[in-house]
């Protein structure tokens, strides 16, 4: 199994990009490229990663890189993969990296189609839980209670009133070869999953939580800490679904969610009742993840 020490020195996502200090997705892009290396084609739709990874004619990517429209990620990578196959290049990994808005909202029909056709591509959703690129608007992946510019804190309502859409389960329902959830704060788990995604053929979906200091309103040095708390409080579960078998990779310590929420300005306004509602949600989420895992044969 690959560990941090085995990663190559060379970066195929270079320094000099213009992400905010402490950017979670920037860490993820660097790590993805360290694992996949030179024989890779990258596609990103509109998202922060597109903007901070390149401003024409400059690019931080050191591999062939494509950008088309917001909703097209899955269909474009499928097309690139098929063209490469036609050229006899089976050794090239085709990866689409989209944000949560570009996946859970705008890109979901193309994603569902490509998954159902079992296209031989890797689709990575970096989940920073809102449209950060356009200035922090809510997406269907934004958690309950979170402030965004489109779920403002007022007298009648405060923050988002709906819970987070569970896209990994939608992908499990497509019965693709590989679905995994990960978080940048758990390096060994993340590396193992990226490595596995590199090895498996067919449609692979990874959803990786990548905290955003600017949009979540926490100091930039806390990015990893916040991600770790998301997992240890049970807000985010680390699991994988491989050829019909689901495994939970990390049993959360179930720290009270308050510890996670209070680090972030986007939850500052929450009432005691809201916190309780989120705690209940976490409990239900963990129980249902566990039940699903049992149903798919990976947990006792």
């Amino acid at each position: 199994m690959m560990t941090i020490k085995d990663l190559p020195l060379e970066d195929y996502f270079t320094s000099g990009h213009t992400a905010c200090p402490g950017c979670g997705p920037a860490i993820l892009a660097k790590v993805i490229m360290k694992v996949f290396g030179k024989n890779t084609v990258i596609y990103t739709p509109a998202n922060c990663l597109l903007v901070f990874g390149g401003t024409y004619p400059y690019l931080a990517w050191k591999v062939p890189y494509h950008h088309v429209a917001f909703e097209n990620t899955a269909v474009c990578i499928a097309g690139i993969r098929r063209a490469l196959k036609r050229m006899g290049r089976d050794d090239v990994h085709v990866i689409g990296i989209a944000g949560d808005g570009g996946t859970a909202d705008i890109g979901i029909q193309a994603l569902s189609g490509a998954a159902e056709r079992n296209e031989d591509v890797i689709y990575i959703m970096y989940d920073n839980e809102a449209y950060m690129n356009t200035g922090i608007q809510r997406s269907s992946s934004t958690p309950y209670g979170a402030w965004t510019t489109t779920t403002p804190v007022g007298k009648v309502r405060a923050g988002k009133t709906e819970f987070k859409k569970d896209v990994p389960r939608i992908m499990i329902a497509h019965n693709v070869p590989y679905v995994a959830t990960a978080c940048i704060s758990f390096p060994n788990d993340l590396l193992a999953k990226l490595e596995k995604a590199k090895r498996i053929r067919g449609f692979r979906y990874l959803q990786i939580l990548a905290p955003c200091p600017t949009g979540w309103r926490f100091p930039p040095e806390k990015t990893i800490e916040v991600g770790r708390l998301a997992v240890e409080t049970g807000m985010w579960t680390l699991y994988e679904y491989e050829n019909g078998v689901m495994r939970i990779n990390h049993k959360p310590k179930m720290i009270p969610v308050e510890e996670y929420l209070k680090l972030q300005g986007r939850f500052r306004h929450l009432s005691e009742e809201d916190v309780k509602r989120i705690q209940d949600y976490v409990k239900r989420k963990w129980e249902s993840d566990l039940a699903l895992c049992r149903a798919y044969g990976g947990c006792e």
Binding site: S15, G16, T18, Y56, Y58, L59, A60, W61, V63, Y65
Partner: peptide
């Protein structure tokens, strides 16, 4: 509008050229 990696008289453009942007 594909950008190949080029060395121009005002510096690098194309893939990997962001290394010249000292942040």
């Amino acid at each position: 509008l594909a950008t190949r990696a080029l060395k121009t008289d005002v510096g690098l453009v194309g893939i990997g050229s962001f290394v010249e942007n000292k942040t």
